[in-house]
């Protein structure tokens, strides 16, 4: 068993070039990479949802850093302050690639990416809360579909500054940690097995009702206003 572990470790970290501390370059075994499966799920209903990522794989030959880069459309947002509080409470590590406004409607916003950091050993699972934005009213009311694309999966053996490409996977640059202090090379997994199809829908207003809604609102507010004005006029001292 010990021998097997040693073998796998050698398989996992194959040093290239100088063996100086901090400039270690390593690769990940392609057989192990093939065992990696990502499942995505969305839990909760309504405007406040959670994305649940789970990565399953064969026994990892070494400690691996995992980075999920999840592109999100303008129809949803993530609150960075909620993330900060979750980081303290649950250790969730998510970095957003841009400042996200938490109040704008979908049509006044743009998409962004969330970088979710996970590290083995341990359960490679993350629960990321996100929220739906208000959408433009449609001519039929109902719901607006918001598709969520599959995330990119980036891997990096722990303690390796650079990573050697393992074809067909390519090496890309991304922040090393959630603190976004430096860039590291990561191995981006091509042809990832993703379980779970993810699409959302959010209720939208019915634009065909605009005229009756405006008329109804105006009528009720005017009546209430008149009712109050009459009473105040009658009982006030002028």
């Amino acid at each position: 068993m010990l021998f097997l572990y040693f073998f796998l470790t050698v398989l996992c970290i194959i040093p290239h070039g100088a063996s100086q501390k901090g400039s270690v370059s390593c690769g990940l075994a392609s057989t192990w990479l093939e065992s990696v499966v990502l499942s995505i799920n969305i839990v909760k209903e309504g405007f406040h949802r959670e994305l649940v990522f789970e990565i399953r794989h064969d026994h990892a030959p070494c400690d691996v850093q995992v980075l999920l880069v999840q592109g999100l459309p303008s129809g949803v947002y993530i609150d960075q302050y909620q993330l900060a509080s979750l980081r303290e409470d649950t250790g969730l590590q998510v970095l957003l690639d841009s400042a996200v406004d938490v109040e704008d409607p979908a049509y006044a916003s743009s998409g962004f990416s969330a970088m979710v950091y996970l590290s083995s050993p341990g359960l490679l699972q993350a629960v990321v809360p996100f929220h739906g934005r208000y959408h433009r009213p449609s001519t039929s009311g109902g719901w607006e579909q918001v598709p969520i694309s599959s995330p990119r999966l980036l891997l990096r053996p722990e303690h390796c500054k650079t990573v050697t490409p393992t074809p067909p996977h390519k090496v890309v640059e991304a922040p090393c940690t959630v603190h976004n202090e430096s860039l590291c090379s990561w191995l981006e997994i091509e042809g990832l097995q993703v379980l779970g199809f993810v699409s959302l829908e959010f209720p939208v207003g019915d634009f065909t009702l605009a005229a009756p809604v405006c008329a109804g609102t105006a009528l009720v507010t005017m009546l209430c206003c008149a009712f109050l004005l009459r009473t105040i006029w009658k009982h006030g001292t002028f």
Partner: peptide, 8 residues
């Protein structure tokens, strides 16, 4: 808000 029904 929490069930995603269209109750506007």
């Amino acid at each position: 808000e929490f069930e995603g029904r269209n109750t506007f």
